[in-house]
Amino acid sequence: MIAVPANRIDVLKTYKLFIGGAFPRSESGRVYSIKDSKGNHLANPSLASRKDLRDAVVAARGAFAGWSAATAYNRGQILYRMAELLEGRSAQLVAELMALEGSTKKLATDQVKESVDLLVWYAGWSDKISTIAGSTNPVSGPYYNFSTPEPIGVVAIFADAKPSLLNFVGAVAGVCVSGNTAVVIAAEPFPLPAITFAEIMATSDLPAGVINVLTGSSSELAPWTASHMDIDAIDASGLTPKQLKEAQIAGAANLKRIRVHTDAKTPERILNYMETKTVWHPIGI
């Protein structure tokens, strides 16, 4: 017989950051309080500092060469694997979404299911995107001329709020399926599903550093992100119009590509973070 004592002490989860495949606390040691939809204290996730952002960018840059050189098939498989594991962790995410977003069990369950399907949908794009977006171009000279989309580099993502898991998964999958690496700043009031999803990424054969997750204040991190010379693009969906404007100004220094999305499921989320490379190949040599 297994007997659980009535006064068993709760074992609560520590929500930490996800940087370079590891789960460190913020180097600053700070946390912030997250409340559930009824205003009760729920958890103390890390309040990431600019130095955590810096470390995450170093990890993402380091992972870029390997991830962008992996075959499209391999990247698709890993995204699909993430979908499998997300399916298995459904119950935990449903509970977190119900508490945080105040949604009914039905709505929360639907959001998780839709997130799983969304991952599978993006996984499928991995080996098709260059066929759809690439082209052979007619030119008036003895050349084969073709254009092909390539990943842009390190992308920072300010994930949009509700539905927080769906937005997070859509943003991450769209950016990374093409070979980009990402630093994701989870929506400030909804960091818990993001960190739980990071635990899924950590166990799904995703190479360390490809996706890094920070929790904390977007108003604190946005200026450092926008001016960071080693970030190539920003998905600014989670920023306010004022923050977006400031990011666009600061991001001009290295011609950062800054985009905003309203749709979780669209090939634009892939193509916005790719650059077209055109090759001229001589005929008859």
Partner: peptide
Amino acid sequence: DGYYASPAY
């Protein structure tokens, strides 16, 4: 400069 640099430079 007051902002993070990139190895690309």
